[in-house]
Design a protein around this nucleic acid. Structure first.
Length: 675
RNA sequence: GGCGGCGUAGCUCAGUUGGUUAGAGCAUCGGAAUCAUAAUCCGAGUGUCCGGGGUUCAAGUCCCUGCGCCGCUACCA
């Protein structure tokens, strides 16, 4: 049997170290990986589970500046908080590292050098705009100016929206930094590009062997390939990152997406060192029998299916390539898209203040966004915990144990002969267990969850049909057989459900008092004696008021953020006086074709009419707003938006999810100025 | 507008490569039972599988088209 051992290297996508863990991270790449790892361990396979934080990049360095501490401090703080949260959810990685650890720097530099020496990196001299005020290079989309072709204002460095022409940022007339509004200077710089087009052929061939990948992943990758691969810059002018290992490259680092996946390797090496077997990582990374499986959310697919394999394939060491990339879709929250910037999510740390980690594991597993986006709601959470975990599984365990204690002093032995119903029942349970194995192997956690709950349902049904409470009074041995079978069912459950609710299943395992360990091979091996031990409730119920409380917390947090978010620097009155805002009447409105947000309005400010483009089409239909009076910023520099002249700007207010026009409190004649 | 996805019971969703009478859980209603965490078990269901057209002996499933919703993207809040 030992010869058949399979070897897995499982990873959860590195989490960006500028915040805490929330349920999106968990459902996207941690829980499904942990479940898979636990399952493989039950099978006795050799599994190593690796992860960590993604520590570099602009957002972290900006955050550090804001808070006046070093980026490393920020990163360390969140790395620690994530470890605690993962522990609270019983997600057990073999190593949780971070890309700012020293190992990682060296590994990433090696990757860079190997690619360079193999001829897959191209060095490009380029001129780039530089914002002197912020001391930062500006990528094309952060520069705007007048279009050299149609001369309309507001053209971005990469494209003019008025005439649609693709631009070179250097051609812009009167360029401005979008970040500071200052006029940027032109500075020359050097960057390295990964020449992805060179990999196309190889990648296609490699991908053709991945027939077993999930459809959503395969389609995504093919889409990318068919559009044609572009070379991608892998360096940036920044100081918080992995330095480029070449002469005269001060102030240049590797772009985060390049070094992040290398974190899987450096984290493995760190694991090996901690075990005092520094070469042990090679057992995984250099052994072609290792199946490397990356768990991640759909936004991460191209990096792991195109760029990362390309990078790996040109290293000297002969690393393995990803075997599978089971990407999950997104989880919504109460029907709305999750968003950390709006604080619309459930933070693990907060969750754990109120509920068991096991419950979240179960609910997220039962409702995982495997094939399409799914929704997490607190009401659904309550229902699943109460009517599934408690009523079906918890109650089966409880009624069996309590009955056994009451009538058999807590000990049940295997009957010599089993009735036909008992045999049939066991057979059915084994069959389901076998199906669960398939589900787990295919990452179908959702299905596995339903299936093990079905096993518990079989148990309840069998208990009822056998009526041991009647038999115990007349044929005590028959009633004992019923209990025995129920214990068998519980025993199977401790194995098949343990990847999803490991803690509860361990408790149950102790409760029913059997010596056999929880491993998959024991499923069909009947136990001979069950002896009760510290019988307790496995789960508690969630009350309606707890759901209400969580919903209130969500709403409260959401508002708090909006308030804090909108402080701008103090200004002088003269600054305000520069604005000419007048009350205007909307004369006509029509949709701008090819846009779903823009309306073309004709507006009157008394003696004058203007053409205005407004981005309000999502909240206002043209016919609804004709005749309305609204505030209008009159002296905004005119520009063209999608080919339409905009000679002023309507003022509107942004609510949580909608936009609202403003309206004077009294009847005011159009053209009146606001001050 | 471009790209991608989705539309199945009141709700949340399963439906493998086309193949009997379209399923599960929850909720609802009726019944049984009283070992158990007011838990369980049995029964009753209800469906224009978004609309229309096509391919086929056969379409929820494949093709075309219309509508609706979502995501990414572009966009003067």
């Amino acid at each position: 049997m030992e010869n058949n051992l399979e070897k897995y290297l499982v990873t959860s996508a590195l989490t960006y170290a500028n915040g805490k863990l929330h349920i999106g991270h968990i459902v996207g790449s941690y829980l499904n990986a942990d479940i898979f790892v636990r399952f493989q361990k039950l099978l006795g396979n050799d599994v190593l589970y690796i992860g960590g934080t993604d520590d570099f990049g602009t957002p972290i360095s900006l955050k550090a500046e804001e808070e006046g501490i070093s980026p490393q401090k920020i990163v360390d703080k969140f790395n620690r908080s994530m470890r605690t949260d993962l522990e609270g959810l019983n997600i057990q990685l073999d190593n949780f590292s971070g890309t700012s650890h020293p190992n990682h720097i060296k590994d990433s530099q090696d990757f860079f050098l190997n690619l360079l020496n193999a001829g897959y990196l191209r060095k490009k001299n380029l001129k780039q705009f530089y914002d002197e005020k912020l001391m930062r290079f500006l990528s094309d989309r952060y520069v705007e100016g007048n279009c050299p072709y149609c001369n309309s204002a507001g053209a971005r460095g990469d494209q003019c929206d008025s005439c649609g022409k693709l631009l070179d940022a250097m051609e812009l007339i009167e360029p401005k930094s979008k970040l500071s509004g200052e006029k940027p200077i032109i500075k020359s710089t050097v960057h390295w590009y990964l020449e992805l087009p060179k990999f196309e052929e190889e990648l296609r061939e490699w991908l053709a062997t991945k027939t077993y990948w999930k459809d959503n992943v395969k389609n995504f990758v093919l889409g990318w390939l068919n559009e044609g691969l572009q070379e991608r810059g892998i360096t940036r002018d920044l100081d918080w990152g992995v330095p480029i290992p070449l002469e005269n490259t001060q102030g240049k680092v590797l772009y985060v997406w390049f070094d992040a996946p290398i974190g899987y390797l450096s984290s493995t090496k760190e694991w090996a060192e901690k075990r005092d077997e520094p070469e042990k990582w090679k057992d995984y990374w250099l052994d072609q029998n290792t199946k490397m499986i990356h768990f991640l959310g759909k936004d991460n697919i191209p990096f792991h299916t195109i760029i990362w394999p390309a990078m790996l394939s040109k290293q000297k060491e002969g690393f393995i390539l990803p075997h599978d990339v089971p990407a999950n879709e997104y989880l919504n929250l109460e029907g709305e898209k999750m968003s950390t910037s709006r604080n619309w999510t459930v933070w693990v740390e907060d969750y754990l203040k109120y509920f068991e980690g096991e419950y979240l594991r179960y609910v997220l597993a039962a409702n995982a966004p495997e094939t399409k986006d799914s929704d997490f709601s607190w009401e659904d959470f309550r229902k699943r915990v109460n009517s599934e975990l408690n009523n079906v599984l918890g109650n089966l365990a409880n009624r069996t144990c309590v009955f056994c204690n009451k009538h058999y002093d807590g000990i049940i032995e295997r009957p010599v002969k089993l009735s036909e119903l008992s045999q049939e029942t066991l057979k059915e349970v084994y069959k389901l267990a076998a199906e669960i194995k398939i589900s787990y192997s295919h990452y179908q956690v959702r299905k596995a969850t339903k299936q093990f709950m079905d096993i518990a349902r079989i148990g309840n049904k069998y208990f009822d049909e056998s009526e041991p409470w009647k038999k115990v009074k007349v044929k005590k041995s028959e009633a004992s057989e019923t209990l025995y079978i129920c214990f068998e069912i519980l025993r199977v459950l401790t194995i098949v459900a343990s990847p999803i609710i490991p803690k509860s299943m361990e408790i149950l395992h102790d409760m029913i008092g059997i010596p056999e360990t929880i491993v998959w091979a024991n499923i069909t091996k009947e136990s001979f004696v069950y002896s009760m031990n510290n019988v307790q409730r496995l789960f508690r119920k969630i009350e309606e008021k707890e759901v209400k409380q969580q919903l209130e917390i969500l709403q409260k947090n959401k508002k708090k953020l909006n308030k804090n978010n909108c402080h701008k620097p103090e200004i002088e009155f003269q600054d305000f006086a520069k604005l000419e805002i007048k009350i205007a009447k909307i004369l006509s409105a029509e949709k701008i074709k090819k846009s779903n947000k823009l309306l073309h309005l004709t507006i009157s400010i008394g003696n004058e009419e203007r053409s205005v483009v407004a981005g309000i089409a999502k909240d206002y239909a043209p016919e609804d707003i004709v005749g309305k009076t609204v505030p209008l910023l009159v002296n905004l520099k005119p520009c063209k938006v999608m080919g339409v002249d905009s000679e002023a700007m309507i003022l509107a207010v942004q609510g949580d999810n909608e936009l609202a026009l403003l309206h004077p409190d009294k009847n005011i004649k159009e053209g009146s100025e606001i001050s």
